[in-house]
Lab assay of single mutants.
Amino acid sequence: TYYTVKSGDTLNKIAAQYGVSVANLRSWNGISGDLIFVGQKLIVKKG
């Protein structure tokens, strides 16, 4: 599943929405910090 980042989104918010961990979101998307951008597509695997 792909999720497109919207204004106001955070990794924590997206992780909670999908029932996954922030660590997994980072791993699946090659993100090291907490910086995400509006319009960015993130890979999300269902929890």
Rank of each mutant, 00 (worst) to 15 (best):
T1R: 08
T1W: 13
T1D: 14
T1Y: 13
T1E: 15
T1K: 10
T1V: 14
T1M: 15
Y2S: 08
Y2E: 13
Y2Q: 09
Y2N: 07
Y2V: 10
Y2H: 12
Y2F: 11
Y2R: 07
Y2P: 05
Y2G: 05
Y2W: 13
Y3A: 05
Y3I: 09
Y3W: 04
Y3Q: 02
Y3D: 02
Y3P: 01
T4A: 06
T4Q: 09
T4S: 07
T4C: 08
T4R: 06
T4D: 07
T4Y: 12
T4N: 07
T4M: 07
V5A: 05
V5E: 00
V5Q: 00
V5Y: 02
V5T: 05
K6L: 11
K6D: 06
K6C: 05
K6A: 11
K6M: 12
K6P: 01
K6R: 10
S7T: 13
S7W: 10
S7C: 06
S7M: 13
S7R: 10
S7E: 15
G8R: 04
G8D: 08
G8H: 07
G8V: 03
G8M: 06
G8S: 06
G8C: 05
G8P: 03
G8A: 06
G8I: 03
D9C: 02
D9L: 01
D9T: 02
D9N: 02
D9G: 01
T10Q: 06
T10S: 10
T10F: 04
T10H: 05
T10Y: 04
T10W: 03
L11C: 04
L11G: 00
L11Q: 02
L11A: 02
L11W: 04
L11V: 07
N12F: 13
N12A: 13
N12K: 13
N12L: 15
N12C: 06
N12P: 12
N12M: 15
N12E: 14
N12H: 13
K13E: 15
K13A: 14
K13L: 12
K13M: 12
K13P: 02
K13R: 09
K13D: 12
K13I: 11
I14A: 01
I14R: 00
I14H: 00
I14L: 07
I14F: 02
I14D: 00
I14P: 00
A15F: 01
A15Y: 01
A15K: 02
A15G: 08
A15M: 03
A15L: 02
A15I: 02
A15S: 12
A15W: 01
A15D: 01
A15P: 00
A16S: 11
A16P: 03
A16G: 09
A16K: 13
A16D: 13
A16T: 12
A16V: 11
Q17H: 14
Q17L: 15
Q17D: 15
Q17F: 13
Q17E: 14
Q17A: 11
Q17N: 10
Q17W: 13
Y18G: 03
Y18P: 00
Y18T: 08
Y18I: 09
Y18N: 09
G19N: 14
G19H: 12
G19C: 10
G19P: 02
G19Y: 08
G19S: 10
G19D: 13
V20K: 03
V20P: 02
V20I: 11
S21I: 05
S21K: 06
S21T: 14
S21Y: 04
S21H: 07
S21A: 08
S21R: 05
S21Q: 07
S21L: 07
S21M: 06
V22Y: 03
V22E: 10
V22P: 09
V22I: 12
A23M: 09
A23G: 11
A23D: 14
A23Y: 06
N24A: 10
N24F: 08
N24R: 08
N24C: 07
N24W: 09
N24L: 11
L25T: 01
L25I: 11
L25C: 02
R26V: 11
R26P: 00
R26E: 07
R26K: 13
R26S: 07
R26M: 13
S27I: 12
S27A: 11
S27E: 15
S27H: 15
S27M: 15
S27F: 10
S27G: 09
S27N: 11
S27K: 14
W28I: 06
W28Y: 05
W28E: 04
W28G: 02
W28L: 07
N29P: 00
N29Y: 01
N29M: 01
N29K: 00
N29H: 01
N29W: 01
G30I: 07
G30A: 12
I31G: 03
I31T: 05
I31S: 03
I31K: 02
I31P: 02
S32A: 14
S32L: 13
S32D: 12
S32E: 12
S32T: 15
G33P: 03
G33Q: 09
G33T: 09
G33S: 09
G33I: 06
G33R: 06
D34W: 08
D34P: 05
D34I: 06
D34R: 06
D34M: 08
D34V: 07
D34G: 07
L35Y: 15
L35R: 11
L35C: 09
L35V: 14
I36C: 04
I36F: 06
I36D: 02
I36G: 02
I36Y: 04
F37R: 09
F37W: 11
F37M: 10
F37D: 10
F37I: 12
F37L: 11
F37E: 11
F37V: 10
V38A: 09
V38T: 09
V38W: 05
V38N: 07
V38P: 13
V38Q: 08
V38K: 07
V38H: 07
G39D: 07
G39M: 04
G39Q: 04
G39N: 07
G39V: 01
G39E: 05
G39I: 01
G39R: 03
G39H: 05
Q40H: 05
Q40Y: 04
Q40L: 07
Q40G: 04
Q40F: 04
Q40K: 05
K41E: 13
K41F: 08
K41T: 13
K41I: 15
K41N: 11
L42V: 08
L42H: 00
L42T: 01
L42W: 01
L42D: 00
I43M: 12
I43T: 07
I43Q: 09
I43L: 14
I43V: 11
I43N: 06
V44R: 01
V44Y: 04
V44E: 00
V44I: 14
K45Y: 15
K45M: 14
K45I: 13
K45A: 14
K46N: 13
K46Q: 15
K46S: 15
K46W: 15
K46L: 15
K46T: 15
G47W: 10
G47A: 13
G47Y: 13
